[in-house]
Design a binder for these strands. Structure first.
Lengths: 218, 218
DNA sequence: CTATTGAGTGTACGGGTGTGCACTGAATTG
DNA sequence: CAATTCAGTGCACACCCGTACACTCAATAG
């Protein structure tokens, strides 16, 4: 296939740089879609390149290996996740209850970025190499950020860092469980979504209810 | 390799049945070990049979497919998990605090059955086919059993089934998180183990602290 | 205008994959 | 005893895998 065919949609000529970037994106998008379906380990370099519209050996013009592509997707997916938290913080619905608004925001973000979340969850637990490790590190970082957010709440003012981290980890773990529930539910089944959201809210409520009675006593 | 060589350890002759059972076990054990290392999707039928000491095509005398073998391992691993709960229930240390004793029991079981737990966690999230589905179903069942256990506690007497299930799910999710932490920590690093156990205890304490203040209000 | 660069091509290779098929030979059956 | 069963063998097949290598030819640089 020749380059003009590949980018046939484009009318005007584009720079070499731009064209390369486009192919790179095609590789990332294709790979993410396939990873979400079959997992990182179940997708071959050949298939990614085929569906992206290039020849296998051209893959190496963009990534040193599939692992490298995977790590790039981890970064991208984590950006999505952080975007979710940012949305949750700025949600005007916050007044109707932080928990309710946060869970709602999470659910919407998951539905809007299913592939990213599938990828993160799949490889966090099921992965093997650098990809899994990268997700582990990023997720720990993410949890630490959440701990900082938590520290601004009334009841949590004087909690130790260790305890805040513990609570943040618990929340992240619970939230990831909710994400998995959402992903496994048939998309468009709003009834199932509502049930999952309600359960997620309850989980968080139960956790936060314990806060006033907490005393560290490690 | 000939049968006498394969079972060279045995002195007396064994029945055909017994020999078949032995090979089946060899397949299961080999596969479990490999799955724990590289995940279900990363292990070929050929490699399992090779390491189990039989020829690839003989595999089909025991399982219809790798999927079928995987499902058999799910059953086996779930039996291990249930054994853990049974141990926790009967733990004489219970007097020193249910949480402390349960987490301790869990940690010991994980260390004694690393491969089973790796397999369950890996495939629960990372898997693709029947295996993943089987684990999902079994884990939900397991969570429901835990809910029944919970119902016997003072404060939880009059909780609705739905709320009990929610709490059980949360506990199972938190516990699976702890299992992953333990598996990822270098085996034999008792200091890391202690830290993980302490955090796990805190998580459970935080959850249970919320119980007295709970009112459903779905 | 000419020379260089580099994204994408096409072929080829050695190696691993699942499984179909005809087989062997010891344990079991009758 | 002879006949049957069946776990395990060995070969063959068609297929997919990653990647080495020499290439083309348009965009860019000088």
């Amino acid at each position: 296939m020749d380059v003009r065919t590949l980018n046939a949609v484009t009318v005007e000529p584009v720079s070499r740089h731009e064209r390369k970037e486009r192919t790179r994106r095609a590789l990332l998008d294709t790979a993410l879609r396939l990873f979400a379906e079959r997992g990182f380990g179940g997708v071959s370099l050949r298939e990614v390149t085929k569906q992206a519209g290039i020849v296998p050996t051209a893959f190496y013009r963009h990534f040193a290996s599939m692992e490298a592509l995977g790590v790039a997707l981890v970064d991208e997916s984590m950006r999505t996740l952080r975007g979710m938290i940012r949305s949750a913080r700025n949600d005007p619905r916050t007044s109707t209850g932080i928990i309710r608004a946060s869970v709602r925001t999470l659910a919407e973000h998951v539905r809007a970025n299913e592939a990213h979340y599938w990828f993160l969850i799949r490889e966090r637990y099921g992965g093997t190499g650098e990809v899994r490790q990268a997700i582990g590190i990023e997720l720990r970082l993410f949890s630490r950020e959440l701990a900082v957010d938590l520290a601004r709440f009334e009841y949590l003012r004087e909690w130790s860092t260790e305890d805040l981290n513990m609570m943040a980890d618990l929340i992240v773990t619970a939230m990831l469980g909710t994400v998995l529930d959402l992903l496994e539910a048939r998309q468009g089944d709003t009834e199932a979504d509502e049930r999952i959201i309600r359960t997620a809210e309850k989980r968080l409520r139960l956790i936060t209810l314990g806060v006033p009675g907490w005393r560290s006593a490690g």
